[in-house]
Write a protein that binds this DNA or RNA. Structure first.
Lengths: 192, 192
DNA sequence: GTCTATACACCGATAGAC
DNA sequence: GTCTATCGGTGTATAGAC
């Protein structure tokens, strides 16, 4: 792997683990096995490198989500697959966690990929919910965009609960709770 | 206000705004209008001061929540009042945000008040949901603890969505979505 | 491209005078 | 209780040799 590549990967790891404020150039260099001069040769500085790292993580997250949401199954099944997909729950969301970073939120550039990713996810889910409504899988009274926001928020908040307790149980409970609410709204479903 | 008092309040503000990693003793002293020696006279160091600040914020959050959850109204109405209560959405949750702080999560002592507060909130909500089930306000098939986790997660995740977009709209959408799901699941309610 | 050297402020804390 | 002085280490670079 090339040096710029290693630097970006190291930054992705550290941003996930410690956030932007908690990640130093020095730590990045050590994790990447690159020298000081090397890092500043390839990137303008910490924000520049962080931007590259965040963009890549955002793309990856989107691709992972699309892999499930664009997969087979009914709308409800795809939402369920998304909610139940394997996650490193205790590590949290590498994109969502950045919203708690004051320096990221303060920077138009750094916040943009975070915003776009979560926004894309909500719209993608909203479309699926609406599709489900047409098929009679979800109550027609529901608002697709609102339910989509609830779904994404439940996942993001689930990470918070899990990390607070040091256990994945609360995340799983929140997801099951949401699925049970969605299921009862499915006129077509009887296993609720 | 006494000096220790001012130091605690300053720390609370900074922890909320910038997190534990992003908050330095120097910044605390400036915000509190206290000198270096003064801070270290009253507190053993940054972790000690942070612990005092976190405990107070946790107590306050619990009291605020209880004010709504222990108020008048049916279980559904109290849950709704909790979800719709006024919040400084773009600032996020002063307790929940700490779960994204690696140094807080790594410390048993600092994490404890965070965990206890969110845990208390979930149990409080679970009881209310179960009460609502007895009254026929929520479907009996639902699990109180799971729904409680979903409610808290929706709020915590709502902050993430709001901060990502720089707008409270996504938070509100998530809350409305959850309320609509809860309402549709109320056998006794017809306004869904 | 990568290395070492240098810079200057800040971090988190301690020491000791007042 | 509060102040100033001091400390070793880190944060975030820049400079310039190789």
């Amino acid at each position: 792997m090339s040096t710029p590549e290693r630097l970006i990967e190291a930054t992705r790891e550290l941003l996930w683990e410690r956030g932007y404020v908690g990640t130093s150039p020095k730590a990045i260099q050590q994790q990447a096995g690159a020298g000081q001069g090397s890092m500043y040769h390839h990137f303008a500085g910490k924000p520049d490198l962080a931007l590259a790292a965040i963009r890549r993580t955002a793309e990856e997250m989107r691709a992972t989500a699309e892999g499930v949401l664009g997969g087979p199954g009914s709308p409800y099944e795809r939402v369920e697959a998304y909610l139940r997909r394997e996650r490193d729950v205790l590590r949290g969301c590498p994109i969502g966690r950045l919203t708690m970073d004051p320096d990221v939120v303060a920077s138009e550039e750094l916040r943009a990929p975070v915003d776009e990713t979560l926004d894309w996810l909500r719209e993608r889910l909203a479309g699926i919910v609406e599709e489900g409504q047409e098929r009679g899988e979800f109550a027609p009274s529901l608002d697709g965009e609102e339910i989509a926001a609830t779904i994404v928020a439940t996942v993001q908040g689930g990470y918070v609960l899990a990390r607070a307790s040091g256990s994945t149980a609360a995340f799983d409970a929140g997801v099951r709770g949401l699925l049970s609410l969605l299921a009862v709204n499915s006129p077509a479903r009887t296993d609720a």
